[in-house]
Every structure is written in structure tokens, then in C-alpha cells.
């Protein structure tokens, strides 16, 4: 299919977005190889794409917090499920025991029960119960108070990393933990279990979506031995152009090209050439060019 310059230029943006169909992209690429003017037009196209970054705006810093507070206030109360919950529904659920226990104890009328063993003995020092959250409080006319606590007690799960229960927690932590340091540790531990499909999936998912580059680096290390597999390769190719961290992009190039020229199939070459079009980091460009030379493919398309 031979394309006219006009129709190539109309499609340059879609090319940059990677939203042309396979055949469309082939045709555009073929035309670009032989047409200096359209290559210049592509540079211009890319320049105004970059220029659009000037139009981005960030919400004011405190807006998210405001929104969350407002939402919490606007949400309907949970439907009461038992007599306990019917009482004191308006009470702030995060009320700390320490602030509550004092006046209650002063009355000398504190009765605590419910939730069986999960409740602490109130003779414990308040400091130790500070982490517990009061969920419901109920008082009767005689001045008796009943408090139900939501407690978070540390629990230890131990075993080898291939123990299903340990594995389950590790996978959850790799995905869910708020602390990036903990996620990185967990991902590092999971590297040992990379033979298992769910672990590999977790590593791929961390690599593609964890906001912390340290965690993504651990994940990409873990995938090294599986860089030849289809799913992993697909993910690595996406990372090539999607990850904002040049160190990780470099790692991805290394892993994808590690097994020599035979790993450089057409799709891979396409991905590298796409990277060359977008890459601004000189070092990454160099690595990319080197890989393309290895594949005897042109890095000079643009």
C-alpha cells in the first residue's frame, strides 16, 4: 500500500499514540523511511505533543483531603445490624479509647464484654489499648457504659515462602501494602517463587503498576529467568515505553535482548524502534541503538 504524504501526516498523531492498526502503521512507517518531509513533519508532531504538557494542571494540594472528608460525611450510615449498632451510631468510630476510658472509668461503672476474647481487659494500661478503636458505645440510664472495640492485634504467620498461606500473604502485601519499603521486601521474597504462575503474575503486575521505582526494579529482577516467556516479554515491551524511570527502561532492554539476536523478532524490533522515537534519555537511546544493531535493524528511521 502506497500512501500519499497528506494521509501520512494526518495519521502521525495516531502513530505517536500507538493507535494505528498493524497494517496502517506498517504503511506509515514504510512511507516515512523514504520521505524526508514527512519525517520532519513527525518531529513537529512530536514537538506539539510534548508542548501540550504545558497545558496540564494539578488539583490544589488540599483538594483530595477535602473531598475525602466530605465524602465520608455524606455517605449514608451503614444499616444497623443489631441492637448494639442501633445505639450511638453518630459516634465517631475512630474515637480513641484513651479519650473515652478516662471519664468512663471515673464513673467507676465500666462494663466491658462482647466479642469474647478479642476484647482487652480494661485493667490494661491505656497506652497498650490506644491502638484499639472504639466502634460502639452504649450507656444506660443508670450510668453503665458498654464499649465495643475494634482491635488490631498483631498476628504471626510463619513458614517457607512456598507455603500456601505465607504465599497468599506475600502476594497480598506485594499488591496492597501502603509502605513501598514493605512492598519491595515482599517482591524480593517472591522472586524465589517465580516458577509459580501467580507469583509471576504478581511480579508482572508490580512491574507495570507499582508507583514506586524501587519495587518495580525488584520485580524486573525477579522476572529475569522468565524473560523468554511470552507474557513476560509483552510486559517488558510495554515497560520499555511506559515506565518513566530510565533505569527500569534500560533493564527492560537488557532482559529483552539478553538471549542474543534470536530474541529480536519483528515485534521486538518494532518496540525498540518505537522507543527510539520517544526516548529522551541519551543512555537509554544508546542501549536501544546497540540492541537494534544486534538485530541488524535500523535505528535511524527517524
Amino acid at each position: 500500500m502506497k500512501l500519499a504524504c497528506d494521509s501520512v501526516r494526518e495519521n502521525l498523531s495516531l502513530l505517536l499514540y500507538g493507535e494505528l492498526s498493524f497494517t496502517e502503521e506498517e504503511a506509515v512507517q514504510a512511507h516515512l523511511q523514504g520521505c524526508t518531509e514527512c519525517r520532519a513533519a513527525l518531529d513537529t508532531e512530536r514537538a506539539w505533543h510534548d508542548g501540550l504538557a504545558l497545558a496540564t494542571v494539578e488539583p490544589p494540594a488540599d483538594l483530595l483531603v477535602k473531598c475525602r472528608q466530605q465524602l465520608r460525611a455524606n455517605l449514608p450510615e451503614p444499616v444497623p445490624q443489631n441492637w448494639l449498632q442501633r445505639l450511638w451510631r453518630g459516634l465517631d468510630l475512630n474515637l480513641n479509647l484513651r479519650s473515652l476510658a478516662k471519664p468512663a472509668m471515673a464513673l467507676g461503672l465500666v462494663a466491658v464484654g462482647y466479642l469474647g476474647a478479642r476484647l482487652p481487659n480494661l485493667t490494661e494500661a491505656p497506652q497498650e489499648t490506644a491502638a484499639a478503636h472504639v466502634r460502639y458505645v452504649e450507656a444506660d440510664a443508670a450510668g453503665n457504659v458498654r464499649i465495643v472495640l475494634d482491635e488490631t492485634k498483631p498476628r504471626i504467620v510463619s513458614g517457607r515462602t512456598d507455603d500456601p498461606q505465607v504465599r497468599r500473604w506475600l502476594l497480598a502485601a506485594a499488591r496492597e501494602a501502603n509502605d513501598p519499603g514493605l512492598r519491595a521486601e515482599t517482591v524480593a521474597l517472591l522472586q524465589g517463587g517465580v516458577e509459580a504462575v501467580d507469583v509471576r503474575r504478581a511480579l508482572v503486575s508490580a512491574l507495570e503498576s507499582d508507583p514506586n521505582p524501587g519495587v518495580r526494579l525488584k520485580a524486573i529482577e525477579g522476572l529475569r529467568r522468565h524473560a523468554g516467556e511470552r507474557d513476560t516479554r509483552q510486559a517488558l515491551m510495554r515497560v520499555l515505553t511506559a515506565d518513566e524511570n530510565p533505569g527500569i527502561r534500560t533493564q527492560a532492554i537488557d532482559l529483552l535482548t539478553e538471549s542474543g539476536p534470536r530474541s529480536l523478532d519483528a515485534q521486538m524490533v518494532g518496540a525498540l524502534q518505537q522507543l527510539m522515537r520517544r526516548e529522551e534519555n541519551g543512555y537509554v537511546r544508546q542501549r536501544c541503538e546497540k540492541a537494534l544493531r544486534l538485530a541488524n535493524a535500523s535505528a535511524e528511521i527517524f
Binding site: 482491635e151 488490631t152 498483631p154 510463619s158 513458614g159 502476594l171 501494602a177 509502605d179 524480593a188 524465589g192
Partner: peptide
């Protein structure tokens, strides 16, 4: 660390609250 003995401490708060 390959299949070493691992202890996962499930402390409360936000760290690993729910899986």
C-alpha cells in the same frame, strides 16, 4: 532468598491490614 524460612509479621494499622 530462595524458599527460606519467612516470617511475615502481620501488624495491624495500615501495613497489611487485609489481604
Amino acid at each position: 532468598m530462595l524458599n527460606g524460612d519467612t516470617r511475615v509479621a502481620l501488624t495491624g494499622q495500615n501495613r497489611l491490614a487485609v489481604n
